[in-house]
Write a protein that binds this DNA or RNA. Structure first.
Lengths: 143, 143
DNA sequence: GTCACTGCAAACCCTTTGCAACTCA
DNA sequence: TGAGTTGCAAAGGGTTTGCAGTGAC
């Protein structure tokens, strides 16, 4: 849950003009843990900004991606999905559906991070990592 | 490097008809370590099968994906790329280009695998994983 | 001979782009 | 005010689809 104040602060720090469209879109991504598609974002945003154009949604998302606060992810060649950039976390990817769930595990992150620090990869400078864990969600309760 | 015999064997085991188009496409993916796009595959295949249609390339790739011998990957929302499913390996993803390189590291794979075996994830049954390591390739020699 | 597969081209749909109108700073 | 942003609609481009012809078994 991201407060409007924090969103405005984030945008200002990036020298991005604070428009209602940007605020609503960023809030939508921040509050939606399900990695929405551009279409889903547009549908959600239209409730607050009835005249917002799909193209605008894409433009704003692209701006966020370029400024490093949002990242594009994709599952199985479907449309792109958008994820708030935050602390290192991983993804649980369903083999049966298009569901992608965040998976936070500091111990696992630390384990991998320490390994990559000790064992350098020739010709490659590591700046980050993300583990995609594929499998199946149990029927009862996806959370 | 995959022998034609092995390719034929692979297709037969999956009850897929052995057509020249399928053989050539599978061989192209197997021999190309650079995760080709459908377009790149089409260009490569046309040398052997001058009349192959782009749609056919997509159809065959989709068949391979559905049969679990090829997987789709994507970098930064570009066109999809195709990767032979083989032993667990990881990806080095360039932040500056669209390059995705395979990264084999049994020690790292074992480390993560053992961790996921010990520490089960509530509500999720793990069947595999892949680590995406982002960073930059050095100018001199990408290999 | 049969049924799955291929070739072809049009359709699809997600995403990008150009431009006039608008608005945040 | 004016540089940057939005709305709109059309264009773009990768991928999918329908169907007639072909080929693997």
């Amino acid at each position: 849950m991201m407060t409007p104040e924090l969103i405005v602060k984030t945008l200002k720090e990036l020298d991005l003009k604070v428009t209602p469209q940007r605020v609503v879109i960023l809030k939508t991504i921040a509050d939606n843990k399900n990695h929405p598609t551009a279409e889903e974002i547009h549908k959600a945003v239209i409730k607050n900004q009835p005249n917002i154009a799909v193209g605008t949604v894409y433009n704003i998302l692209e701006t966020f991606v370029n400024n490093g606060i949002v990242e594009k992810i994709s599952s199985k060649g479907d449309k792109m999905r958008y994820d708030l950039v935050s602390e290192t976390h991983h993804h649980l990817v369903s083999k049966n559906s298009n569901l992608i769930q965040d998976y936070y595990d500091d111990e696992l992150t630390g384990l991998i991070g320490r390994y990559l620090n000790k064992n350098t990869i020739p010709g490659f400078k590591v700046s980050g990592f993300k583990l995609n864990i594929s499998g199946e969600f149990n029927k009862s309760g996806k959370n």
